Simulated scan of single mutants.
Amino acid sequence: MNRPVDGESRKPRVAVVFGGRSSEHAISCVTAGSVLQAIDPDRYDVVPVGIAADGRWVLESGDPDRLRIQGPDALPHVDAERAPVALFRESGSTDLVVTEPAQPPRTLGEVDVVFPLLHGPWGEDGTIQGMLEMAGVRYVGAGVLASAVSMDKAYMKVVLAAAGLPVLPSVTVTAAQWSADPIGCRDRAGALGYPLFAKPARGGSSIGISKVHDASELDSAMAAALEHDPKVLLEQAAVGAREIECGVLQRLDGAPETSVPAEIRITGDHEFYDFAAKYLPEEHTELDVPAEVPAAVTADLQALAVRAFEAVGCEGLARVDFFVFPDGTAVVNEINTMPGFTPLSMFPRMWAASGLDYPALVDRLIQLALHRDTGLR
């Protein structure tokens, strides 16, 4: 049953928020298209809210077809020219209000839960979560701290390592450090050994990531990462390891449960799981759902996934990514508090293989949010 909404029998109103100011704007739109198509309109009143690349909030069409990737140069985006929309707090409720030129403001009604399908900074990093906490609006997924820690790969490693979880060696280089002492930064990178990866510390979807085979490639890799974030993570490559992921999902009683793990295998000219391999035609990757690993490795990955989820104080959902070496040992690559829900995304595939199909997964997340209050928990 749906949780009663302020004593009324109306359907809960879900604002699906997507787009945003980060470099993952297009992927957020694709994710939203899939989720909008999956939400049961008989159970929920759905309002699509887009955040344009310049930060403007607008009332979007919600047409899933408009939110699909049509090709490498035809990525979807939020239409900034649509009617502006805002959350308005009054008399103990938070309403969605549309404001159009030469028209009086019109209220779409009270928002019961926000489904923030934002990837990257200014959304997945605790910023929108903090705004929703201030507004007293329930929302899907992790809270402020877990979102912020998990978005910043450098701090995520600190927290996971402090909790006794295995992570790869890395160093963090800021734009200021790279400018002031490039030789020292190169020495720090060299101490990790090559090959290594240069990653925007607070990015996602493999945007701005480069594999650095030797010292001659470091400067160009740093330049590529710094285009997206003034903070770069240089991380030792997991040579010979398999990339395996595991989903975590809370039950209504708060206990986390795990999906079957799944493996990503890169094909063709791709040396790692880059943007094209993730989101463009699937011939770039081969996916094993579930992963073909011994039962003991599966159990170990599932246990590590729950420990990572709890270490950062996560809520709702997460995808935990691992590198698994030939001897079966694993290290945590990262934890993603708002994993993609695109047609190619691993998180819904893993749960479907675990017995929870896409619509049921989306419904579970909304119900979790409706049953959780804002504020200190």
Rank of each mutant, 00 (worst) to 15 (best):
V144N: 15
L168N: 01
A163T: 00
D42P: 00
F115T: 13
G71E: 06
D42I: 02
A86V: 07
A161S: 14
P84R: 11
D79S: 09
A146Y: 07
W57C: 06
L59T: 11
V46F: 04
Y155T: 15
G92K: 06
S150V: 09
M134I: 15
S91R: 14
A176K: 07
L96G: 04
S147N: 07
G143C: 08
V171H: 00
D63Y: 08
G123N: 05
P64G: 10
P101Y: 04
L168S: 04
V46I: 09
R89T: 10
V149C: 10
G136D: 02
D63T: 15
R56D: 06
S150F: 08
V149E: 03
R138K: 14
D54S: 09
A162P: 00
A154T: 14
L165N: 07
Q129W: 08
G62V: 10
V140T: 09
F115A: 12
P76H: 05
V47E: 11
V171N: 00
M131G: 12
D95V: 10
V97Y: 08
G50M: 03
L132G: 11
S147T: 09
P48M: 09
S61Q: 11
V113P: 07
V46W: 09
D152L: 09
M131F: 13
A74T: 13
L168K: 00
V140I: 11
A162V: 00
D54F: 03
A53W: 00
P72M: 01
P41R: 05
D152V: 08
V173P: 00
A154L: 13
G143N: 11
A176C: 00
A83D: 13
R106Y: 03
V85E: 04
A161Y: 09
A163V: 03
A102I: 02
D63H: 12
G141I: 02
Q103V: 01
V137W: 08
P121G: 09
I69R: 06
A162E: 14
V98D: 00
P72S: 01
A148H: 12
P104A: 14
V171Y: 01
D73E: 12
L67Y: 15
E100P: 02
P104E: 10
A142W: 12
P72Y: 06
G136Y: 05
P105N: 13
L118P: 12
A175M: 00
F115C: 12
G71Q: 12
V58R: 03
W122K: 14
G50T: 04
A142T: 12
V137K: 05
Q103D: 02
V111G: 04
